[in-house]
Measured scan of single mutants.
Amino acid sequence: KWTITVQGEEAIKWAIKVAEARNLDYTVHIDGDQAHITIE
């Protein structure tokens, strides 16, 4: 299990796209213009 933090709307969209493309189980916690994405 690991967490990445991305900043900015484009980076958030990209990170989610990558997680979905790899069929990963993930949760997103949005904090202002940052998102913390935890991959199970």
Rank of each mutant, 00 (worst) to 15 (best):
K1G: 08
K1H: 08
K1Y: 10
K1V: 10
K1W: 11
K1T: 11
K1F: 09
W2S: 02
W2M: 05
W2D: 00
W2N: 02
W2A: 02
W2Y: 10
T3K: 08
T3M: 10
T3A: 05
T3L: 08
T3P: 00
T3D: 02
I4P: 00
I4C: 13
I4R: 02
I4N: 00
I4W: 13
I4T: 02
I4A: 01
I4V: 07
I4F: 13
I4Q: 02
I4L: 10
T5P: 02
T5G: 02
T5C: 13
T5M: 08
T5N: 04
V6Y: 04
V6N: 00
V6F: 06
V6D: 00
Q7D: 04
Q7N: 07
Q7S: 12
Q7K: 13
Q7E: 08
Q7I: 14
G8N: 03
G8F: 07
G8W: 07
G8P: 01
G8E: 02
E9G: 07
E9P: 10
E9N: 07
E9S: 12
E9I: 13
E9F: 12
E10I: 10
E10P: 06
E10H: 08
E10L: 11
E10S: 09
A11S: 06
A11M: 12
A11V: 05
A11E: 06
A11F: 10
A11I: 05
A11Q: 10
A11R: 11
I12K: 04
I12A: 02
I12W: 07
I12S: 01
I12Y: 07
K13L: 11
K13R: 13
K13Y: 11
K13G: 05
K13M: 10
W14I: 05
W14N: 06
W14A: 07
W14V: 04
W14Q: 06
A15D: 01
A15H: 05
A15Q: 03
A15R: 00
A15I: 14
A15T: 05
A15S: 03
A15L: 12
A15V: 14
I16G: 01
I16Y: 03
I16T: 04
I16L: 09
I16H: 01
K17S: 14
K17Q: 12
K17W: 13
K17V: 07
K17M: 13
K17D: 07
K17N: 09
K17T: 09
V18W: 15
V18N: 07
A19E: 02
A19T: 04
A19P: 00
A19W: 05
A19I: 15
E20G: 05
E20S: 07
E20P: 01
E20M: 11
E20Y: 05
A21P: 00
A21L: 13
A21H: 07
A21D: 13
A21G: 06
R22Y: 15
R22T: 14
R22V: 11
R22E: 10
R22L: 15
R22G: 12
R22P: 03
N23S: 08
N23E: 08
N23P: 06
N23K: 11
N23T: 04
L24R: 05
L24G: 04
L24M: 06
L24S: 04
L24I: 06
L24A: 06
L24T: 03
L24Y: 11
L24K: 04
D25Y: 14
D25I: 15
D25T: 15
D25E: 13
D25R: 15
D25H: 15
D25G: 11
Y26Q: 00
Y26S: 01
Y26T: 02
Y26V: 05
Y26D: 00
Y26P: 00
T27P: 00
T27C: 09
T27F: 08
T27A: 06
T27E: 07
T27L: 05
V28N: 00
V28E: 01
V28M: 08
V28G: 00
V28R: 02
V28Y: 05
V28F: 05
V28P: 00
H29R: 14
H29W: 13
H29G: 03
H29T: 13
H29K: 12
H29I: 15
H29S: 10
H29Q: 12
H29D: 08
I30A: 04
I30R: 12
I30M: 12
I30T: 05
I30K: 06
I30E: 03
D31I: 13
D31S: 09
D31W: 09
D31M: 11
D31Q: 10
D31Y: 10
D31A: 08
G32N: 05
G32D: 04
G32F: 05
G32K: 05
G32S: 04
D33Q: 09
D33V: 07
D33F: 08
D33I: 08
D33Y: 07
D33N: 11
D33K: 07
D33P: 06
Q34F: 15
Q34S: 11
Q34T: 14
Q34N: 09
A35Y: 12
A35I: 11
A35T: 07
A35K: 04
A35W: 12
A35Q: 03
H36Y: 14
H36R: 12
H36D: 03
H36T: 15
H36K: 11
H36P: 01
H36Q: 10
H36G: 03
H36W: 14
I37W: 01
I37Q: 00
I37L: 07
I37C: 04
T38D: 03
T38I: 13
T38H: 08
T38V: 12
I39D: 00
I39A: 02
I39F: 14
I39S: 02
I39W: 10
E40G: 11
E40N: 14
E40P: 05
E40Y: 15
E40A: 12
E40Q: 13
E40D: 11
E40I: 15
